[in-house]
């Protein structure tokens, strides 16, 4: 393990309890993120990508429960940390950005009030000092006349501007780790491009590690250094963006990439992945992707493929796409 590793996740497992059993939303996930690195965590709805994000900061409420694994952040296991320790870390060393910025912004406080609150909660400084820091943070994410904007309330901002405020607030205390859950999915493409540009720049400048959770492979391709593809609660392929996206070996990764309209001539049939992802309570035995897989073997029905390092990536597949 190198000193640059900010977050080291090992065997993370989060289940949701129901009357008929405990169903694993996250089913044994391992990954690391290094300083200044952007990790794209890609998956479809129900793949467990968001639950992974919330599990990292121990924000899982019943009926959900984190039942196994370690989340090592700066040498401490967040699973073993007390609620007090976690409160000190969240919003300070670890920041989260959500799809809906109204989830993070308080509608009855001005933007300035909530941004200074985020600073004063974790730092000793004067209110005037905190306000100046907040204004600087807004300017950093490309908001013009920040001093005037600080006096406004969240409803006075457009969707793209609110997301910038949420990002600026997340960055206030120079976090070592930012977890962003679909932060640009609700935004228009031109606004999305502006925000991706800012995040990439900020991660380079501040050295923050970023986990970017999304369903959009194309966004990840342009943004991320490394890519993890999730399916049915597990990471099926993880590695450098160039490796995973240019030479995918897992049939699911390949299928996702090929299903894009950019992969065929206009008007031609798209390469679809047949079938649908299994529900959490009816995952098949063996490899969960098997029923939709064109490369499945007899062994795939019996044995869940374990993660294996090969060809510059970690892969969970009995019959990977030939290199």
């Amino acid at each position: 393990m190198t000193a640059d590793i900010v977050l080291d996740v090992r065997g993370l497992k989060t289940v949701f309890h129901a009357v008929d059993g405990a169903w694993p939303a996250v089913d044994g996930v391992d990954f690391t993120v290094a300083r200044g690195e952007i990790l794209g965590l890609v998956g479809e709805s129900g793949s467990g990508k968001s639950v992974t994000g919330f599990s990292l900061v121990q924000l899982i409420d019943p009926p959900g429960e984190i039942v196994a694994g370690q989340v090592l952040f700066g040498g401490t296991d967040l699973r073993a940390a007390s609620e007090d320790e976690l409160r000190r870390l969240r919003g300070d060393r670890i920041a989260m950005i959500f799809q809906d910025p109204l989830m993070t912004l308080n509608p009855v406080l001005s933007v300035g009030e909530q941004m200074t609150e985020a600073i004063l909660e974790h730092r000793r400084c004067s209110r005037a000092d905190a306000l100046a820091q907040a204004a600087a943070a807004l300017a950093r994410v490309g908001i013009s006349s920040p001093e005037a904007r600080l006096k406004q309330y969240p409803h006075e901002f457009s969707g793209g501007m609110r997301q910038r405020v949420a990002i600026a607030t997340a960055l206030l205390n120079d976090p070592a780790l930012i977890i962003a859950d679909e932060p640009t999915t609700a935004l228009d493409v031109t606004i999305q491009a502006q925000i991706l540009y800012q995040v990439q720049k900020l991660s380079r400048e501040t050295g923050a590690a970023v986990i970017w959770i999304t369903h959009d492979l194309a966004v990840v391709a342009e943004l991320a250094d490394r890519v993890a593809v999730m399916y049915a609660g597990r990471i099926v392929e993880i590695g450098a963006a160039d490796v995973v996206l240019d030479r995918p070996r897992h049939p699911y990764t390949l299928g996702l990439l090929n299903s894009s309209a950019a992969m065929v001539e206009p008007g031609a049939r798209l390469h679809q992945i047949d079938g649908v992802a299994p529900r959490i309570d009816s995952r098949p035995s063996g490899c969960p992707f098997r029923p939709r897989c064109t490369r499945s073997l007899a062994v795939c029905a019996d044995v869940d493929p374990p993660p294996q390092a090969q060809d510059g990536r970690t892969l969970r597949c009995h019959n990977p796409v030939p290199a």
Binding site: V189, T190, Q192, A193, Q194, L196, Y197, Q200, D216, L217, A218, V219, A221, E222, L223, D225, A241, D242, L245, L257, S260, A262
Partner: peptide, 17 residues
């Protein structure tokens, strides 16, 4: 230009202002 593409890697975005 703003369409994200899986074929582009670490594109220096030139966003529309």
């Amino acid at each position: 230009k703003a369409i994200p593409s899986a074929a582009r890697r670490k594109a220096g975005f030139e966003p529309l202002q």
